[in-house]
Amino acid sequence: MGRKALIDQGELRRLVREGLSNAELAARFGVSESGVLQAKRAAGLSKPMLDHSRALPWKLDRSHNQSGPATNLRNLSSVAQGRAIPAEKLNTALRWADRLVANGLDISYESGRGFQEVPASAGRSLVETVLSEARGALDAAGHPESNPKD
């Protein structure tokens, strides 16, 4: 049974600021990269994990995980949670969601079949909700894409 390696958090913070990779940190401290990741989390040095369950409330088949709708919903969810994404990905996701909402459409998912555009039900659709949350975060950050182009 191995002993738990001790990683000095102050030293870890200093080395992270210097830009050492996880592999370099692991070698430096004599631990695995997983150990470095655990130490970084414990020291508050890692970004919080994003939760996309509101934007993707389904268990996706592996083959649908990187599809256009899944990617767009995930990107909008990332923005809604305060994460910056590349402008081209943001613009693609916003245009896709704007088109659906403007045409009264929403998205549904069935395992084995994939994503389908469907008429939005009364009230707010999933796509409209995720789009609204993303635009709210963009607006709060003063981002120019927060409001649709006229």
Score class of each variant (00 low, 15 high):
Met1Ala: 14
Arg3Leu: 10
Arg3Ile: 13
Lys4Trp: 01
Lys4Cys: 02
Lys4Gln: 07
Ala5Leu: 00
Ala5Pro: 10
Ala5Lys: 05
Ile7Gly: 09
Arg13Ser: 05
Arg14Thr: 14
Leu15Val: 07
Val16Asn: 05
Glu18Phe: 09
Glu18Leu: 13
Gly19Val: 12
Leu20Glu: 01
Leu20Arg: 03
Leu20His: 02
Asn22Ser: 08
Ala23Trp: 06
Glu24Asn: 01
Glu24Met: 03
Leu25Trp: 08
Ala27Ser: 09
Arg28Ala: 03
Phe29Met: 06
Phe29Ala: 07
Val31Leu: 01
Val31Pro: 02
Ser32Thr: 01
Glu33Lys: 08
Ser34Ile: 13
Ser34Asn: 05
Ser34Gln: 04
Gly35Ile: 08
Gly35Ala: 04
Gly35His: 03
Val36Glu: 12
Leu37Gln: 10
Ala39Gly: 00
Ala39His: 00
Lys40Gly: 00
Arg41Trp: 04
Ala42Ile: 03
Ala42Thr: 03
Ala42Phe: 02
Lys47Phe: 11
Lys47Gln: 12
Pro48Val: 15
Leu50Ala: 09
Asp51Gly: 10
Asp51Ala: 05
Ser53Phe: 11
Ser53Ile: 11
Ala55Pro: 13
Leu56Thr: 06
Pro57Lys: 15
Pro57Asn: 09
Trp58Asp: 06
Asp61Ile: 14
Asp61Asn: 12
Ser67His: 05
Ser67Leu: 11
Gly68Ile: 11
Gly68Cys: 04
Pro69Thr: 06
Pro69Asn: 01
Ala70Val: 14
Ala70Cys: 06
Thr71Phe: 04
Arg74Met: 10
Arg74Leu: 08
Asn75Lys: 05
Ser77Thr: 12
Ser78Met: 08
Ser78Asn: 14
Ser78His: 12
Val79Tyr: 01
Gln81Arg: 00
Gly82Phe: 04
Arg83Asn: 08
Arg83Ala: 13
Arg83Glu: 15
Ala84Phe: 00
Ala84Asp: 02
Ile85His: 03
Pro86Lys: 15
Pro86Leu: 09
Glu88His: 15
Leu90Lys: 15
Leu94Gly: 04
Trp96Met: 02
Ala97Cys: 00
Asp98Ile: 12
Leu100Cys: 03
Leu100Val: 09
Val101Phe: 13
Asn103Asp: 14
Gly104Pro: 10
Leu105Asp: 05
Asp106His: 06
Ile107Val: 14
Ser108Glu: 13
Ser108Arg: 13
Ser108Asp: 11
Tyr109Leu: 01
Tyr109Thr: 11
Glu110Ser: 14
Ser111Asp: 07
Gly112Met: 10
Gly112Trp: 13
Gly114Val: 05
Phe115Leu: 03
Phe115Ser: 08
Phe115Gln: 07
Glu117Trp: 09
Glu117Thr: 13
Val118Asn: 06
Val118Thr: 09
Pro119Gln: 01
Pro119Lys: 00
Ala120Arg: 12
Ala120Phe: 04
Ser121Leu: 04
Ala122Cys: 03
Ala122Gly: 07
Gly123Tyr: 05
Arg124Ser: 06
Ser125Glu: 12
Leu126Trp: 02
Val127Asp: 04
Glu128Leu: 07
Thr129Phe: 01
Thr129Asp: 07
Val130Gly: 03
Val130Cys: 02
Glu133Asn: 13
Glu133Thr: 06
Arg135Pro: 04
Gly136Cys: 10
Gly136Met: 06
Ala137Phe: 07
Leu138Thr: 13
Asp139Ser: 08
His143Ala: 15
Pro144Asp: 10
Ser146Asp: 02
Asn147Arg: 08
Pro148His: 10
Pro148Cys: 06
Pro148Phe: 08
Pro148Gln: 07
